[in-house]
Amino acid sequence: MWIGLSYACWGISVVLALWMLYDWFKVDTTYSEAMLTSSREGELEAVSEKHRI
């Protein structure tokens, strides 16, 4: 049973790694680099909260 579980672990690892590589390729070829790297520090804080000091 444990040896079978060990092989299953290798299998799951390979499948998920390949899926992430596929999705990475798909995203990078679908969206522009400017959009993907457009996150800015502090923006989320500013969206919903008004600072009163």
Binding site: L36, R40, E43
Partner: peptide, 10 residues
């Protein structure tokens, strides 16, 4: 104001 769901993704 920010445009999180527009041109930017955060």
């Amino acid at each position: 104001t920010t445009t999180i769901h527009g041109d930017r993704v955060s």
